[in-house]
Design a protein around this nucleic acid. Structure first.
Lengths: 236, 236
DNA sequence: TTGTTAAATTGTACCGGTACAATTATACTT
DNA sequence: AAGTATAATTGTACCGGTACAATTTAACAA
């Protein structure tokens, strides 16, 4: 692991262990330099990472402060999307409805940048947090990149498997959000009624080399899903 | 303007003018260094900014490539939230329903980190994109930070005014998303029916010194709002 | 042609430095 | 006590460098 990542983790741990709250001040940069015995730019890089994650904010001339939102029930929009799990103490489980190899339809192929004659894995799951229905997920993996999947892998974290077993790294993703109404079949799976409101998120996940490898459609249970997104002004 | 910001802008312009698409390659780092006559770290910083904005991705050993999502109808979730307007060619207008000074209720005061005896500006608007109803917005500004507002300012971009006229800088924001059903009064304003689906976003905007100055509740017209969020893997 | 090895290309991690801007603390005045 | 100038603190911009890892290209062998 890289130094600046390691340091970022340790600082994050420190904040949690000390139970620091919004506005609490962290040690100054120079002290961190000597504490971790690295150069200023390495500390800066670690802090920048934490800033992007919404864990701290820095104020020139003043110091480094803890940033923390105050709504326990909300999940990070990104945590449910395959990235670093940030669900805290909540337990995520899955019912696997389907894992199979197939040919993609035109829409799926287009989103994955492949041909309709190429193979994809289709995975269908219903996911739960602490036993409550969270969402219905239908996702497609490019078989050329993810050559093998089974129900055990899929019941767990697919992304962990892909990264550790296949040695590929996930780079970035495009998420498309839209509110709509449930179809009858979706309603059954989520334990709701037809035409009930829902949040639909389509996501295209890319490897770090820019190639799409996963296209997924998620339909959320509107009563069990609330999300937080922490944004940093100048960058968006 | 800072060098690295300036360079980031110029590169962004270049991408648009050349109409580069996903996967197209940009000049290599070393060439950019000489072209803009700055050091490597300044170019790196500019590129990092563009990477965060979802405009490029970098690939060690290979080059710098354009990243571009391919769904024209979708607005960036952040563009409608006061940050850098990225709506492209679409025109954003507002009906101002209310601009007044008042005392906040307990909930608003809590979200703004102030006392119920402190003054706030209450702003209520209906916003349109290209003439279509986009959302209903109710927002509260800490009067101690934003001492004056009127209907002209509010009809335009409040954030531009706050930053340029008041000389404060916006630092970061926490957004809370939730799907629900419209109340009758909301439905009237949006031209929909009661109990229709809707996306509700509450946002707390902070200055760069960490102080909250704006708490807003937005209710979106579910048929006229679709959002894109571009995420970068390792940072979330 | 196909695969393998070696070399060149190219971005990233990390160092250490100077200058500076924003904030906060201090000393001083009124 | 309250304002005002001054100094100290503290993070950010920018420079220029070395080493290195990932990728691509070129050279080579089977």
């Amino acid at each position: 692991m890289l130094k600046y990542q390691q340091i970022a983790n340790e600082i994050e741990q420190y904040i949690h262990k000390q139970n620091l709250k919004q506005g609490d001040k962290l040690p100054v940069l120079e002290q961190m330099m000597s504490q971790y015995a690295v150069s200023k730019s390495t500390i800066t890089k670690a802090l920048e990472l934490l800033e992007r994650k919404g864990i701290i904010f820095q104020l020139r001339g003043s110091g480094i402060f803890v940033r923390r939102h105050n709504r326990p029930g909300y999940m990070s929009l990104f945590s449910t999307q395959g990235f670093k799990s940030n669900l805290g103490d909540r337990i995520l489980t899955s019912d696997v409805l389907d894992v199979s190899v197939m040919k993609p339809d035109a829409l799926v192929a287009e989103n994955l940048g492949i041909d309709v004659t190429d193979d994809v894995y289709r995975v269908e799951r219903v996911r739960y947090v602490d036993g409550e229905v969270l969402c219905h997920e239908e996702s497609y993996y490019v078989k050329a990149i993810v050559p093998y999947l089974n129900r055990e892998i899929v019941a767990d974290s697919i992304f962990d498997y892909v990264q550790s077993a296949l040695g590929v790294t996930i780079g970035f993703s495009d998420m498309y959000l839209q509110v709509g109404r449930l179809t009858e079949s979706e309603a059954v799976l989520l334990g709701l009624e037809e035409d009930d409101p829902t949040l639909r998120i389509e996501t295209i996940f890319h490897l770090s080399n820019g190639k799409p490898f996963d296209y997924s459609r998620i339909t959320y249970h509107y009563e069990h899903s609330q999300f937080v997104v922490q944004a940093n002004g100048p960058y968006m």
